[in-house]
Amino acid sequence: MDPQRVKEAGPIAPSSVKAARKSFAVTNTYVKNVTPQKEIVTVHTSSPNIEHRSFHTEQNQIYQGEVNVLSIIDTNKDIMCCKYTEDTKDIATGFIDGIIRLFDCNTGNCTHTLVDDECRAYPGPVTAIKHRPVSKAHPITNMLLSSYVNGCIKCWKYKYDQCIYTIREKRQTLGICYHPRFTKFVTYGDDAKLNMYDEEAQTQERTFYSSGRKNIIDGHTSRIFACVFNPKSHHELISGGWDDTVMCWDDRQPYATKHFTGIHMCGEGLDFDKPGKQILTCSWQDKDIIQIWDYGSCKLIETIVPDNHQCKLYCGKLVPQTSLAVCGGSDSNVLRVVDINMKMVRILNSLSTHMVYRNSHGSRIENPGVKQP
């Protein structure tokens, strides 16, 4: 069944015309030593005086709440996604030209540029950057996994600017999600399917998709933009996208086990709380944009309206060990840090560039300042 969407969706990065030649495969790739080209990114790092201002005139920024701007990274190409490295010293940013650049969080300097011959020959916007969750069982590896709109998934040893291996899918790959404990990850894209891979073996284990049975909702029917594993389960995960549904999956079952509707998702606006009992959804729609759901019953617990700013949301995550949720979107380009319990905004910022913040709890917040059309 061809993926269909039932309502208007948010903008999506264009795919490369040359991406039609892609096929599913895994290859080991090593970057040749080439003369570095002129860097296209310009970085402006805030001075200590500017970092503590509550109003930054040049950038048209408005800050409300306890906020400390650590650095401002201004680029001349759109940033599609970003992710802190495992030690949180650098932030990796994926650009529309298919290049990943790492910036030092303290100085704002570009420390690494991740691009190989394939990225140059068949460029496609970077759709996601992830690293394996750090734990005692999985120490820091200095590796990043990235997906591209042309169907590539690349593993980078970023300390050496080296691509370790490449997986190619026959679709637009729109995101990646790591398993919280096992060496596995899931990719998802425009074919309404989720693919699960074993990272160590670099092999595909299974695919999650709809059965296609009439009047039965047991899988997605359009693009998937978000996926997250249940932190208290080895087997359960959820996903959301353009078809206005959040699907609940169990890798021991052939199709989705349950679902709830009314959430139009165009980015990573999906998250579990630490106990794995409640779900946060952030939607790209006019109303009911921030909601809390009960995972067991798939029933709505509450809809949160923190302020009167009109903002369709692309992304949203819960801040660990706090009652805070971070979310951001289009229209008024607002980055919110919302106290879920008090139903109020702690920090409000109108964004035009990529910024790194600390909230009142001292936790770092990352947000891609993608300019909206």
Rank of each mutant, 00 (worst) to 15 (best):
M196C: 14
K136Q: 11
G94M: 07
D74V: 11
P180H: 03
T111L: 05
P125H: 08
N76T: 15
S146R: 04
F185R: 07
C105W: 02
E86A: 15
G108Q: 03
I100Y: 04
K184Y: 08
D191K: 02
I99G: 01
K130P: 12
Y158H: 03
A121T: 11
C163L: 10
D97S: 06
C81D: 11
I96C: 09
Y84P: 00
I153Q: 06
T166C: 14
Y158V: 00
K77Q: 15
R171Q: 11
V134G: 11
N106A: 13
T141K: 02
K89P: 10
A137W: 08
T85S: 13
L144A: 02
P139M: 06
H179P: 08
T88F: 06
K89E: 14
G189A: 09
K159F: 01
D116R: 07
I91T: 06
K159P: 01
M196N: 07
T111W: 02
I140V: 15
T85W: 01
A137T: 15
T187N: 04
L194C: 12
C155D: 00
D104V: 01
F95M: 13
C177E: 14
G151E: 10
V126T: 14
K184I: 14
Y158N: 09
T88E: 12
A192Q: 04
D90E: 12
I91Y: 05
I140K: 12
P125S: 15
I96E: 03
T88M: 01
I79C: 08
T93Y: 05
H179S: 01
N142P: 07
I99C: 13
T141G: 07
K77I: 15
E86N: 12
H112Q: 12
R171F: 00
E169S: 07
L102Q: 05
N106P: 11
L174N: 05
Y188A: 10
P123F: 06
C81V: 14
G94C: 00
C163M: 14
Y158A: 00
M80S: 10
Y165M: 01
I153L: 03
G94N: 02
C163N: 13
C82S: 14
M196E: 14
N76H: 15
